[in-house]
């Protein structure tokens, strides 16, 4: 993805770009081959979400519900009562927006074991524009009692997050994206629900990211280092069942905290961190993300720049907070 160069997080020599949704589709097939009692629902976007890989391998366990997301989510809730583990996929806008009340009532209030894996979240949907760039899915899903919320950063982490979601008893939301993202984890990385992972140690400022946000934080740490500011980068792939202890421990060892996500700056990761710090350890905080706006059409890297979700923005926020 040449475009990511503008955002400073990818496309550089030596950076491997990962497709999170391909990793998802491949993992569904692996689970199917291992005999996992899963079924997969999609709403006319199987090619885009990559559930088509599973549909091809296990046609009897795949249900295309047509462009009907509310009924699809409810059907998954019903199916879960029969002992199968349903995965439900469509774009984040429809899974969490259009079908919200079905996620809340049938899945949430019903305490059902449904895995909602949405692709095409965030600004990096790009050209489709503001109607399709879901910038509030983390907030919407985080508000549902009992919902676990995950936002992995690369393919390796996505594969493990999907397996963890399958093994986890209870509803899980997993945020995936259209665009390929830079690989940030080494092969020996082990994802765990509820565990944040330190990506780079520093001393001055704590940069906290999820999804693409972590890559942006890592690039920002390079910019800050060039100015003599040592940043610690913490990756938080679990937004709900959040790793409160690690965040607080690291926050207390730094003079400021900056969050970064391709989501509204409020309600998602930034919201979690602000809520935690304001109650448990008030300290300087800046939240990099979309500032209460809708998205619009454009190349992902142009949009990230236009909306200020860049390494430069994170670095500037860090300096402002210190």
């Amino acid at each position: 993805m040449a475009g990511m160069e503008t955002a400073g997080v990818g496309g550089k020599v030596g950076v491997v770009m990962d497709s999170l949704r391909d990793a998802y589709g491949d993992t569904l097939v692996e689970l199917g081959n291992e005999g996992a009692n899963i079924v997969v629902f999609d709403a006319d976007l199987a090619g885009s979400t990559r559930t088509s890989k599973f549909a091809k391998a296990f046609p009897d366990r795949f249900f295309n519900m047509g462009a009907a997301e509310q009924g699809m989510v409810a059907a998954a809730a019903g199916a879960s009562t029969t002992g199968v583990v349903p995965f439900v996929s469509t774009f984040a806008m429809f899974a969490t927006g259009r079908a919200y009340e079905f996620v809340r009532q049938a899945v949430g209030v019903g305490h059902q074991n449904v895995k909602i894996v949405a692709t095409h979240a965030g600004l990096t949907v790009g050209e489709d524009g503001g109607t399709h760039q879901c910038l509030e899915d983390l907030a919407l899903m985080r508000m549902i009692p009992g919902m676990t919320v995950l936002s992995p950063a690369d393919a390796l982490e996505t594969k493990q997050a999907i397996r963890a979601a399958y093994a986890h008893k209870g509803p899980v939301y997993v945020r995936l994206t259209r665009d390929k993202f830079p690989r940030i984890h080494a092969e020996d990385y082990r994802f765990q629900i509820g565990k944040a992972v330190m990506m780079r140690p520093g001393t001055d400022v704590l940069l906290v990211g999820c999804g693409l946000g972590t890559s942006i934080c890592l690039a920002a740490a390079d910019l800050l280092a060039a100015e003599g500011i040592e940043a610690t980068v913490l990756h938080c792939p679990t937004i709900k069942l959040f790793d409160r202890e690690t965040l607080l421990r690291l926050a207390k060892a730094h003079r400021a905290v900056v969050t970064c996500e391709e989501h509204q700056a409020h309600g998602g990761l930034g919201g979690v961190v602000a809520e935690l710090l304001s109650e448990a350890h008030p300290m300087p905080l800046r939240r990099v993300g979309v500032q209460d706006q809708f998205g619009q059409s454009g190349k992902p890297e142009k949009l990230l720049e236009a909306y200020g979700v860049t390494p430069q923005a994170v670095a500037a926020a860090a300096k402002a907070a210190l």
Partner: peptide
């Protein structure tokens, strides 16, 4: 409107198994 689509899902889940 929440019940009928859930009943559809139950019927699918039973059929699969």
């Amino acid at each position: 409107g929440q019940g009928l689509p859930q009943a559809v899902g139950i019927a699918l889940g039973l059929k699969v198994q």
